[in-house]
């Protein structure tokens, strides 16, 4: 699959898809989207990049091992639950804060933190599977 056209387009396509995955993730609270589908889109972005350039450029591009990213996601999700302990509400209750940044009211919440955790878990798990499969194929 290493044609010139594909290799020229792949970086742009991959970065667009990553951007879109973040959009889908953040949109997910009230509208279709969310961490799971966002993570899948991000993982497919890396898969495209991997198909075009091979596995090691992808590994270099994401800096961390994909499994470590998965672990980070799990960690975030667990933290999202633990925060409820300090607010005296049952586990995993949604907690909201509304900081004003540059005059814009931003709604931040533990469900969002949890969803970001899901994003990373899915992203990491699917990416590491995809990379492992592509590596095998090349051998």
């Amino acid at each position: 699959m290493r044609t010139l056209i594909f290799r020229t387009v792949a970086p742009y396509l991959a970065s667009l898809m990553i951007l879109f995955s973040i959009f889908v993730l953040l949109r997910g609270h009230n509208e279709p989207g969310g961490g799971f589908i966002g993570g899948l889109i991000a993982a497919s972005a890396l898969a495209i990049y991997g198909i075009a350039f091979g596995v090691s450029p992808v590994r270099r591009a994401i800096r961390f091992h994909p499994m470590a990213l998965s672990g980070f996601g799990l960690f975030l999700a667990a933290i999202a639950g633990i925060l409820s302990f300090f607010s005296g509400v049952p586990f995993l209750t949604g907690l909201w804060i509304y900081p004003s940044i540059f005059g814009v009211d931003l709604a931040l919440s533990t469900p969002m933190l949890f969803d970001i955790g899901v994003y990373f878990v899915v992203f990491g798990a699917i990416t590491s599977t995809a990379l492992a499969l592509e590596e095998r194929e090349r051998d």
Binding site: M67, A68, S70, G71, F72, G73, L74, F75, A77, A78, I79, I82
Partner: peptide
């Protein structure tokens, strides 16, 4: 889960 995640990282 917390320590599993840390171990994974």
């Amino acid at each position: 889960f917390l320590f599993g995640a840390i171990c994974l990282m």
